[in-house]
Design a protein around this nucleic acid. Structure first.
Length: 595
RNA sequence: GGAGUGGUAGUUCAGUUGGUUAGAACGCUGGCCUGUCAAGCCAGAGGUCGCGGGUUCAAGUCCCGUCCGCUCCGCCA
């Protein structure tokens, strides 16, 4: 007689507690492990919720016991029996450890091959093997639980925005128009229109703005976005954004709604009480003090610009040359400098800084009398040294790291060294949450390669209204009404107040090197729409994958995406991308190029 | 496009200066065992050393090329 069909599942396996003792129950699951004592057989039966121990004795249920002798790891079985107390044999290490199920009937639903790796937490397995057998990797409790949490976060998100804050959830197209600027598009060839292509959205940017023009007022979507760029531990080619757009708002209104959101999420997901308001810092301050636009503020260790102090007063060759070429000299002051060995100075630090363009890392150690030792010491007068000690707060035992180069290299290198040093000095509290709004980004950055301005955020971002007059005369000085939300040094999201005037939008396109004709061809529909009564509006998008990475303390995005891609953007399980039939090529009017 | 790192049993790894039959742990298979819970004890099976080429009397080990995973730079409005 079959259990499935005759009986309903009583409860999930991880939920059994002493109050269930005496109940007749039916459970389903995978065999986590079996322990055959010759007589009694114990089976740990796992499902998504955890596992419960089954006890199979030869009498009086001989048939169930005989089947229990056959089962192996990862077989799928059903069991019917009675919950009993374990008496003196309680296992305090597991939630269901006070009880077990005395099995009366056991049914084998599915046998299983021996899996290529054990389905347990804490098993180190090659990423390639894990991804090839992703369905088995996902069966591991730790990974499995990430997706239970992800589902919970989605539910809280919808409740907060659509249930409480007046947003409506709307969908935007996946097949859309390819746009210039920004990341490389994934393209989809059109069968109906030979030689023409759709693009997958990098983000639904223009559509959500059109929804504001359409009077939707507040829009929310948990949407998939696609960018055909190279991958990182925190970057996948397809990823999920919480996409939001608000009408009739200032940045303050958006900060306020978002702060309420992250406070709610961190509270309900982790029981963490986030103090509001979230700290703010301008882009310029972030670059100046921390060398990057997403500083990890779980610890301080600020950078100090020494250029004005050193200019014309220093003989150390590297500094002199850098300043002469228009570069800068910045320092990272590390208290407890004795933590760092000569090997760190000669090898670790230069190797960490090199990928960011640094040709070397100069250093000085500070003695009890305020003297310096190390390569920099010679070129610095006693007076200047005293000034620098005061400026940096350096005292006995301090280590000072110097970088001299063009600003981009100095900042990127020292930002990296700051993280390395913070970690080595034990300054990073793994349980801390350092939230930060980075504000006042520049509108444009200069691109040397094509000798033109690029939008730092995106082309729809509004400049500060009081700087509109400088848009053409001095684009580099104009600040954007843009903001990023940073958590522990990770960019969780970003957004801006948008341009809602057709003439300003056209002017910005012009600055980005789009002729009126091109602008009309690429964005004509959008420029037209702006002319039909556009509410002032703005929005933000949060990376849901990155947020789950933070909430689950995962080291990689792959641990919070069910079916992620490898670093070469492939799916090794399904073997994708792959060849397609000649017929498909023909249907799409595409010819293979001879290579 | 570039840099680094790894690829040896099903899994994680060790493998010395190039030298006998490539090892360990876990897993797997069989046996024993009625209170285990990462069960225990006994026995056993299991290898294209990523792939191709080269040097050598001899290559897991050295050289060249190539493929794949991961981390990073470039790239990511």
């Amino acid at each position: 007689m079959a259990i499935l069909g005759q009986h309903k599942r009583s409860q999930v396996n991880g939920s059994f507690r002493p109050d269930a003792v005496g109940k007749s129950v039916v459970v389903f699951g995978w065999v986590q492990s079996y322990r055959d004592h010759g007589g009694v057989v114990f089976i740990d039966l796992r499902d998504r919720s955890g596992f419960v121990q089954l006890r199979c004795e030869p009498t009086p249920f001989a048939e169930a016991h005989a089947k229990a002798n056959l089962v192996r790891s990862e077989w799928v079985i059903a069991a019917r029996g009675t919950v009993i107390s374990r008496g003196d044999n309680v296992n305090p290490k597991i939630p269901t450890g006070a009880i077990e199920i005395a099995v009366e009937e056991l049914e084998i639903l599915s046998e299983a091959q021996t899996p290529p790796f054990e389905i347990r937490d804490g098993i180190e397995t090659n990423e390639n093997t894990r991804l090839t057998y992703r369905y088995l990797d996902l069966r591991r409790p730790e990974l499995n639980n990430n997706f239970v949490l992800r589902s919970k976060a989605y539910q809280i998100t919808r409740q907060y925005f659509t249930g409480e804050q007046g947003f409506i959830e709307l969908e935007t197209p996946i097949l859309m128009k390819s746009t210039p600027e920004g990341a490389r598009d994934y393209l989809v060839p059109s069968r109906v229109h030979p030689g023409q292509f759709y693009a997958l959205p990098q983000s639904p940017q223009t559509f959500k703005q059109l929804l504001m023009i359409a009077g939707m007022d507040r829009y929310m979507q948990i949407c998939r976005c696609f960018r055909d760029e190279d991958l990182r531990a925190d970057r996948q080619p397809e990823f999920t954004q919480l996409d939001l757009e608000f009408s009739f708002v200032t940045p303050e209104d958006i900060y306020s709604v978002m702060e309420g959101y992250v406070q709610r999420i961190w509270s309900e997901m982790l029981g963490y009480d986030l103090a509001l308001p979230i700290r703010r810092m301008t882009f310029n301050d972030a670059m100046d003090k921390y060398g990057c636009d997403k500083p990890d503020l779980r610890f301080d260790l600020p950078l100090t610009d020494l250029t004005p102090t050193l200019k014309d007063r220093v003989e150390f060759r590297v500094f002199v040359d850098a300043i002469a070429k228009g570069g800068i000299v910045k320092a990272l002051h590390l208290p407890n400098g004795e933590t760092f060995s000569r090997k760190d100075l000669d090898k670790t630090f230069p190797e960490e800084a090199a990928p960011h363009g640094a040709k070397g890392v100069a250093w000085a150690r500070v003695t009890a009398t305020g003297e310096w030792t190390g390569p920099v010491a010679k070129g610095i007068s006693e007076e200047l040294r005293g000034e620098l000690n005061a400026l940096l707060g350096a005292k006995e035992g301090s280590l000072i790291l110097f970088l001299a180069d063009k600003p981009s290299v100095v900042n990127a290198s020292l930002a990296r060294l700051r993280l390395v040093a913070g970690e080595r000095l034990g300054l990073i509290d793994a349980n801390a949450w350092a939230f930060l709004w980075v504000t006042d980004f520049p509108m444009f950055e200069w691109g040397e390669d094509e000798k033109r301005w690029y939008a730092m955020h995106h082309p729809f971002t509004s400049p500060r209204v009081d700087q509109l007059q400088n848009l053409e005369s001095d684009p580099g000085s104009v600040l954007a009404q843009a903001y990023d939300l940073v958590v522990n040094g990770i960019e969780l999201g970003g957004g801006s107040i948008r341009i809602h005037r057709s003439d300003v939008q056209q002017k910005v396109f012009g600055l980005l090197g789009l002729s009126d004709e091109e602008a009309q061809q690429k964005f004509g529909f959008f420029l037209d729409a702006l002319k039909y009564g556009t509410p002032p509006h703005g929005g933000i998008a949060l990376g849901m994958d990155r947020m789950m990475m933070l909430l689950t303390h995962s080291a990689s995005l792959r641990d919070v995406i069910a079916f992620p891609k490898t670093q070469k953007a492939t799916d090794v399980m399904a073997d994708c991308p792959s060849d397609v039939d000649e017929k498909q090529w023909a249907d799409l009017h595409i010819a293979k190029r001879r290579v």
